[in-house]
Design a protein around this nucleic acid. Sequence first.
DNA 1: AAAGATGTCAACCGCGACGTA
DNA 2: CTACGTCGCGGTTGACATCTT
Length: 280
Amino acid sequence: MGRSPCCSKDSSLNRGAWTAEEDLILSEYIKIHGDGGWGSLSQKAGLKRCGKSCRLRWLNYLRPGIKRGNISGDEEELIIRLHRLLGNRWSLIAGRLPGRTDNEVKNYWNTRLSKKQALPKPESAPSPGDHLPVKAKAVKITKVRNKFVGSGKLNHQSMKSIDAAQTVKIPELLIDEFIADTNSDIFENMVEWGCPSIQNNYQYCSQDFRSEGMSSGQSEQVSVLQNNMEQFESFTVADDQGIYSGTQQRHFVDDFRYSEMSRLLLSDSEEDWKENFTQF
DNA sequence: AAAGATGTCAACCGCGACGTA
DNA sequence: CTACGTCGCGGTTGACATCTT
């Protein structure tokens, strides 16, 4: 679709660093009239700035509650874990760090953490993966597209005899990569729902989704969740103990997912989360 | 002390999603 | 359905600060 005319082409507008006076004008205007409608806001406020520039300045600098600098160890750890799950989705990551902006998180990652992450880990030093369940940490999984899904004839034993010619091999992944790959939508939805805890998430779902019906948007999100769950069952998950299928496979993957997500969301206990989410 | 290298971070840019007429 | 405007996102830039030689 069409793009807005680029304000950078307008030479009558100020560019570059904001002055204290401009900051004051913008803050005072938003205090009275609220934010939004950035295109016209700059004109109404009497600023020679394009709407985009005003929006950015407000969101990243002037907005109340912004924390700047001094990212704590806890925050740093959370950024690393979220980045492992979500990749460069800075706004989602920043959404889990109160007072931090996507720009700050992005800058922090690019200038500090990306280099740190690239360094080889010393053998004796604790690694980010040390908090993972033993089972998941030790295991490499193979995704094998299962041509028999839905036949209803497979059990754990028959899965072991699947002929290589009847399957399509997908490159091996570490389990957390697999989880990140298949769960990002679920996680993203949870973040976007703005649920501060798993318990709230469940209450939200039970109250709005079940009792009072769903909006089309909510219905769509539920579909995404269901599709993701079905995805698990269209793959075979294997480790050196054997092949996991059906319920076993789901539990295997879910065990990891529950523990990781409950930590990430800094919420109720893992058991609460598991119980509540499976009911959903 | 000076010059070059490197780090930091605010701001810019272009794109895609979305809403609306 | 199309055209257009707005918004938000992520990649990139460039000015300034700090470090190193």
